[in-house]
């Protein structure tokens, strides 16, 4: 029982970061309608920013959080303005190839600048742990979870309460209507794409503390985020958190209870996803 609860806790904490990365992806997909293969590179940006500030300025990654949010927002907005906007009306496959090219470019630029080495930061609280009775909670994963939650909640508030947020949602629901309502769709796209990148940038800082910074740090999380977004229903922002939860819990349970489960985590993750997609298609049709 204790083990089960601990396992569920582990899964829950992981789900927070997954949801943060996936929400960004869902934003660009749901609002702008772009499948962004370069999402992981925004995450990498955050991770490297955190590393560089730590290594050369001695700054705690906590400071990097805000900076990464801004920097990634800026890069995201620039990406939208320079690259995405010209292909908004192009076929979906063209957009995908464009973001794929961007992903290759950014990743290899990072390789040129920093090399493929794995880099780590060392804030004093890195391994700090809260012991609640028999349960252990890593302070950083818990913090990352809470911050993810807070960010997602404020995003939710922004989308439902503010005028600008309502405009974003309007665009997400119908790409024709906003024009009729006098909303500048382009500005909304820019905002949504920037926000998506900013969320990834923040997640990157978190990962630099929990894991490492390297040009390839974004890959695995982006792959899983695609899975989460698909499970949630493409572009469906509300479904992202439950979907992240389902997949993270499945992972934690498998790797705790199945002998040799650590090697099967990926397979189970994708099997769950596969079955869910297929099941929904058959029910829905």
């Amino acid at each position: 029982m204790e083990l089960l609860l601990q396992t569920l806790l582990n899964g829950l904490l992981m789900a927070g970061v997954y949801a943060l990365v996936a929400t960004g992806l869902a934003l660009s997909l749901g609002v702008v309608g772009i499948v962004n293969f370069a999402h992981g590179e925004f995450l990498m940006l955050g991770a490297f920013l955190s590393y560089l500030l730590f290594a050369f300025r001695g700054l705690d990654p906590l400071f990097a959080l805000g900076l990464a949010f801004l920097a990634a927002f800026l890069v995201g907005a620039l990406t939208y303005w320079g690259l995405i906007r010209p292909v908004l009306k192009a076929p979906e496959l063209n957009q995908m190839l464009l973001t794929f090219g961007l992903s290759i470019l950014l990743q290899n630029l990072a390789l040129l600048l920093f090399g493929a080495d794995t880099r780590v930061v060392a804030p004093p609280y890195q391994a700090a742990t809260l012991a609640l009775g028999p349960f252990f909670l890593g302070a950083v994963p818990l913090g990352a979870f809470l911050l993810s939650l807070a960010l997602l909640l404020s995003l939710q508030l922004f989308l439902t309460r503010s005028r600008l947020g309502l405009a974003v949602r309007a665009v997400a629901q119908n790409r024709l209507a906003p024009g009729l309502l006098g909303i500048e769709a382009e500005g909304v796209y820019l905002l949504a794409f920037g926000l998506a990148a900013a969320l990834a940038g923040v997640a990157g800082v978190m990962l630099s503390v929990m894991l490492y910074a390297s040009p390839s740090v974004g890959f695995l999380f982006t792959l899983k985020s695609f899975a989460i977004v698909a499970l949630a229903g493409l572009g469906n922002l509300k479904g992202v958190v439950p979907a992240a939860l389902v997949l993270a819990l499945a992972e934690a349970l498998v790797s705790t209870y199945l002998p040799g489960g650590g090697g099967l985590v990926e397979a189970v993750f994708f099997l769950v996803l596969f079955l869910a997609l297929v099941g929904r298609a058959w029910r829905g049709a």
Binding site: L3, Q6, T7, N10, M14, G138, P141, L207, M210, L211, Y212, S216, L220, E251, A252, S255, T256, P259, G260, G261, G262, G263, V265, E266
Partner: peptide
């Protein structure tokens, strides 16, 4: 002995076990 996927960074479940 337990296998894991390199780079995933998720050792908590295995270590718990």
């Amino acid at each position: 002995a337990e296998p894991y996927k390199a780079g995933s960074g998720q050792f908590t479940p295995i270590l718990t076990r």
